Simulated assay, not measured.
Amino acid sequence: MHGPAPSGWLLVALCAATGAYCLLRMRSGVEEQRRAAGGEALMGFGMAAMAVPAAAFAPPPWAWAGYAVVFGAAALRALWAARSGAHHLHHLVGALAMVYMALVMAAAPGGGHAHGDGGVPLLTGGLLLYFAGYVLLTGARLIPVPAVAGASGAPAGWGDRPELARACRLSMGIAMVAMLLTM
């Protein structure tokens, strides 16, 4: 999944910054927002780790299986949480996409850093379409949203800013498209 080093480092920075902001969002007073932020932090940091350029760090072969296990567990958690809300279905698709990418990288010759010449597999194409649509929809939803006020009427804290949460999700969607394009 590794493309050119400069774009790889930009992707790492974007995903790590998004994961860090999602950790801040976990301080929200709303339990559902905390749960969603935790899953998004895992995705952000996992995407950052998977996007590190191969020239800087070539993960051991077992690392890809580790990614698959971690994101498989995240997919099961998202599936369980999907009983209460549709947004968890997006978390499920994202986690399964990460499992798919980890398995493809594990099966690739050279420890996951070779690119195949067989064209775009159907599943990769479907995931690309899904995430491209998600990016467009999320971007359209970024049109100004009034900030949520706290119970005392004070401005919302960093964890309760819906426009920042949407921007966070948008950046992770863009990063997912970029990662899928380099497969």
Rank of each mutant, 00 (worst) to 15 (best):
A106M: 07
L164N: 09
V145A: 03
A154P: 06
T138V: 11
G157A: 13
L142C: 13
M101G: 08
L129F: 14
G153S: 00
G116V: 04
G112E: 00
E163R: 14
P121S: 13
G118W: 14
G111L: 03
P144G: 04
P121D: 12
G150K: 04
R141D: 09
G157Y: 04
V104E: 15
V104S: 07
L123M: 12
H113R: 14
A151I: 03
G118L: 15
A151N: 03
A149K: 13
L127G: 02
L137Y: 13
L123G: 03
L136F: 08
F131G: 12
A132D: 05
A154G: 06
D117I: 05
T124F: 10
T124L: 15
V135K: 00
V148Q: 10
W158L: 12
T138L: 15
P109L: 06
A95P: 03
G125T: 07
G139N: 13
T124M: 11
V145F: 05
V99K: 01
H113Y: 07
I143L: 08
G118I: 14
Y130A: 09
G157D: 02
V135F: 04
S152C: 06
Y134F: 15
A140L: 10
G119C: 14
A107Q: 05
G112H: 01
A151W: 08
A151G: 02
Y130M: 07
R161V: 14
P144V: 15
A108C: 05
P162K: 02
A154C: 05
G119T: 04
G94H: 05
M105R: 13
L96K: 01
V99W: 00
A102H: 04
A140V: 07
A147M: 11
Y100D: 08
A97N: 04
G126D: 02
V135S: 04
Y130Q: 03
Y100G: 00
R141S: 10
P146C: 10
P144H: 15
V120W: 12
H115W: 09
A95K: 04
L142W: 00
Y100F: 12
V99S: 03
G139M: 02
L127N: 08
G125K: 06
G157Q: 01
P144C: 12
I143S: 08
L164I: 15
A132G: 07
F131I: 01
P162A: 13
G111M: 03
G125I: 14
G150S: 12
L129S: 03
G116H: 14
A95W: 00
A151T: 03
V99A: 00
L122W: 13
A102T: 06
A108E: 14
L122V: 03
L129A: 11
T124R: 15
A108W: 05
G153R: 08
G111S: 10
P155N: 09
G153Y: 01
R161Q: 11
